[in-house]
Structure formats: C-alpha cells, structure tokens
Design a protein around this nucleic acid. Structure first.
Length: 314
DNA sequence: GGAGTGTACAGCTCCGGGGA
DNA sequence: TCCCCGGAGCTGTACACTCC
C-alpha cells in the first residue's frame, strides 16, 4: 500500500482511474488488456487490485489487520466483487488464524472500517472511501462463526474498472513478521512485472506512505531506515520471488528521497526463499542474515569439543 | 556543527495455547 | 468462544559516535 495524493517524486505509482457514474457500464479495453476482476489467481496466489495496494493513511493497521483484509479480498475476488450491494461470507476460523478467540478479529475489522482509501481520479479530484464496508459477525452457535461483509459502492466503482494489480503469494504474505515488509511486498508485487521499469523514486514522505509508517513515528531517516526499511528489505529478499533494494537520494548532505528498485531472483535464490518459507518463524531473522550458519557451526564446534559419550551398556 | 549511523534498552504487539 | 497468560521478537526512542 502506498502512493496517494502526496506521492513521490516519480508519479508512476499514482493510481489514475477513470470513474464512471453509478449506472455506467465499464468502457471497452484496448486489445490484450484485461480487467483485474476477470483474472484468475494461480494456485497459492491472490490477485489484489492496485487500488487496494496504493492506499494512503493505513499507518495504524497492524500486520494481522493487513492479512485479514487480504483474506477478505481473496475470498471476494472475481467478477462478483464488482457488483454493487453484493455481500460476501467467510468463516471466522479462516480469519482468526491459529488464535482461539474472535476478539482480535473484531478489533481488526473496526480498524479496517476506519481506514480511508484515497485515490486520485483522472479529473484531478481525490476520492476517499472506507477500506471495508458494512459487515456482520455472527458468533452464536447457530451461525457457526460466519463473517458477512461488503465493500463501499464507491470502492466497487474503482475496482470494477481496475486493470492494474499485484500478484501476491499467500504463503510469502503469511510468513512476514513485519507490517512494513508486507506493505513493501505488495507495492513491489504490483510493479515488478513491468518490463520497462525496474526502479521508482520517492520522496521520504512518499516512501513512508508506501510502507505505512504512522505520522509522527520514525521521523529521523536513520530510525526509519533501521526500523522500517531494513527489516522490510531483509524479509522480502529472504522470502519473496523477487528482490528489492532502497537507495537514499541526497540533496547536499541531507537525504531527501529514496530510489526503490526491484529484480527477479535467480534459481538458487528462489530455492533458498522457498526453503525458508517452509521453516518455522523462530530464528528466521538470524537465518536470513546468514548468522544461522555461523551459530550452527559454533554449536557443532562446541559439541565436537565435548568428551564423547560412552556407549550405553545393554 | 549538522546530519547520518549504530546500538542499547524499554515498551509494545503478535502469536500460540491453556482453561473455563 | 472468551479470557487470559507468557514468550518471542518487533518497534520506537535516545544517545554516543562518525563523517563531511
């Protein structure tokens, strides 16, 4: 998520969607172009319209909020998502993850409802809509924990005509431990398939928005880099099918912007990423940083230095 | 001297799970 | 399903240090 009305130096990330009136039919597309909602995600993938990735003002959302929202989008995804007044249902078990109660789910839903999507329209106006529309959480026994939800009609208007999207690997998405990593992953996922582009420049504010850093937090570049950018890059480069890098741009000595770049991984890197996703989250940071190998080696050395145990007498 | 870098530490959030 | 707990590790802040 990122981009928006206060976007970066390079305007390439700003979503520009031609909005139709409530009753308009979608205009015909040029040959070879498809509407996002007509696409079919592959196995283990989800497709997220760019309008839901380039969201401003999502700084207060936690990692689990973002995951839950992606699960709701994945569940609703398809031509039906573009129908006004359409409601969708999903089992709360799928949204809760491994946690037993619904209390966190309720909190997440309320935070998602308070999140405003800001999209710049082609006529220069900015549209503001709620990320999640009206919903019902049935938590009595007869309803078996079903969450019924809808999207704002104005948001549906955007989604119906969307042609730009990001393909997200669900396993990778679930493996992130940092919310900044998930935001950066989504932002790059929608960009890295572009053949003519492998980088994009942002202002510091644009980059903060892209990562979803709350206002007033991590104001100093050093802190932003150390606590948000570095962990996000580390996780993506360790887990995703593509690599990312962020290079600061200086004006004099002051850092005034940053260049985000991305590339496809080679076979070995892909194999490493796949292997890491299969491993438990505990110790991932160390493994990704390559420290795991070192600590394993020192452990082996320590074990080797111990006196060999005598074979048991049977 | 101003700006970036590195790091220690405290607080917070996430996550998994026990028990009612 | 809810309430609660504890551990792991993420996040934010502050400060000393380095560099230009």
């Amino acid at each position: 998520m990122g981009g928006g009305e206060d976007d970066g130096i390079d305007d390439g990330s700003v979503v520009s969607v031609e909005i139709l009136s409530e009753h308009d039919e979608a205009p015909p597309l040029p040959p070879g172009r498809h509407r996002t909602l007509d696409l079919r995600p592959g196995h283990g993938e989800m497709i997220k319209p760019a309008e839901l990735i380039d969201v401003s003002g999502h700084g207060h959302l936690t990692l689990s909020d973002k995951r839950i929202y992606n699960a709701l989008v994945a569940n609703a995804f398809g031509p039906a998502m573009g129908e006004r007044g359409r409601e969708f249902q999903i089992s709360t078990t799928l949204l809760r993850g491994s946690h037993k109660g619904n209390e966190r789910l309720k909190d997440s839903v309320e935070r998602l409802m308070k999140t405003i999507v800001r999209v710049r329209l082609s006529d220069g106006q900015t549209r503001r809509v709620q990320l999640l529309g009206a919903n019902d959480l049935h938590d009595d026994e007869r309803q078996e924990g079903i969450f019924t939800y809808s999207f704002d009609p104005k948001l549906i208007g955007l989604l119906k005509n969307s042609t730009v999207f990001g393909k997200l690997e669900i396993q990778v998405m679930m493996a992130f431990t940092s919310s900044y990593a998930l935001s950066l992953y989504e932002a790059v996922a929608r960009r890295h398939r572009l053949q003519h582009k492998t980088s994009e420049k942002f202002t510091i504010e644009g980059l903060r928005d892209l990562l979803g850093v709350p206002e007033g937090k991590l104001d100093v570049w050093g802190n932003l880099f150390e606590k948000a950018i570095k962990p996000a890059i580390r996780e993506i480069n360790g887990l995703a099918a593509f690599g990312v890098g962020i290079r600061p741009i200086k004006t004099g000595r002051k850092i005034t912007g940053a260049e985000l770049s991305w590339w496809n991984k080679n076979e070995d890197e892909l194999r490493d990423a796949f292997r890491e996703i299969q491993q438990p989250k505990v110790g991932r940071k160390a493994r990704i940083e390559g420290r795991a190998e070192e600590s394993t080696r020192s452990l082996q050395e320590a074990l080797a230095s111990l006196p060999k145990p005598k074979p048991p007498k049977w």
